[in-house]
């Protein structure tokens, strides 16, 4: 492995903006993001398959754990979307939560940096803005889809309700929603990893531990916030601004 001569500690290397580029046709992709993403997805799939391989009425072990996770995301979706409509959205919201949660924690718990890549470094997939923007855009598409499927073209009525004066703000909202979603997640995770990296660079022992604990906490909170907001947007799009309730 080649180390830059500037680095005194090979473990505490700070790299932002370096990527392991893979060439796909004439497209460039970030290899390190895909590697960790596949590992995270693999973990989720293994846990899911292990939990459902032998479903029993009285759950135990991994089935119990995954049922707990499922009930958690189900309640999350139910609270935000409503008892009547939440069921088809559980997989999407739940996968958002589980994927982001496992990805964040993998970034905080797995010492990816011990694995050396020719360029760039392994980190949580949510550390890359492409991932968070992809997820946020999917949320946008999801709530548009939800709104149109539920209310048809009447969905547009929400832009001019209660008054057309708010139309620019309503339109602006559709841009700020994915923007805030993606940047919140990206910023939190990147900042957390950078803080830990800087602290490790300065004091390699013990001092970064509290920040790492805080990082675990932030990671979990960010996953929850992302999933909750996604569910809230979907619920809001289906509910409308009371236009449907007045008809009843």
């Amino acid at each position: 492995m080649m180390h830059q001569s500037l680095n005194l500690l090979p473990l505490a290397k700070l790299e932002v903006g370096h990527h392991l580029y893979w060439q796909l046709g004439n497209l460039k992709i970030h290899g390190q993001v895909f590697i960790t993403t596949w590992i995270v997805m693999g973990l989720l799939l293994i846990a899911a398959i292990a939990a459902t391989r032998n479903i029993e009425r009285i759950p135990k072990g991994i089935q119990n754990l995954m049922e707990y996770a499922l009930e958690y995301v189900r309640d999350l979706a139910k609270n935000q979307i409503g008892e009547k409509e939440y069921r088809p959205w559980v997989p999407f919201v739940g996968t958002l939560f589980l994927f982001i949660f496992v990805a964040n924690w993998s970034g905080a718990l797995v010492p990816w940096k011990l694995i050396h890549l020719p360029e760039g470094e392994l980190a949580a997939p949510t550390n890359d803005i492409n991932t968070t923007v992809a997820l946020a855009l999917l949320v946008s598409l999801a709530y548009f889809y939800a709104g149109f499927r539920k209310r048809g073209l009447g969905y547009f009525a929400k832009y001019i309700e209660p008054t057309p004066i708010l139309l620019p703000i309503a339109i602006l909202e559709d841009f700020t929603k994915p923007l805030s979603l993606s940047f919140r997640l990206f910023g939190n995770i990147l900042a957390d990893e950078l803080v830990v990296g800087v602290l490790v660079l300065l004091v390699p022992l013990f001092v970064p531990l509290p920040v790492m604990m805080l990082g675990l906490f932030t990671s979990a909170i960010q996953a929850l916030v992302f999933a909750t907001l996604a569910a809230a947007y979907i619920g809001e799009a289906m509910e409308g601004h009371g236009g449907e309730h007045e008809a009843h």
């Binding site: 993001v33 993403t37 890359d128 492409n130 991932t131 992809a134 997820l135 999917l138």
Partner: peptide
């Protein structure tokens, strides 16, 4: 780059 659509 192409990471975004592929991730989606």
């Amino acid at each position: 780059d192409a990471t975004l659509p592929l991730m989606a």
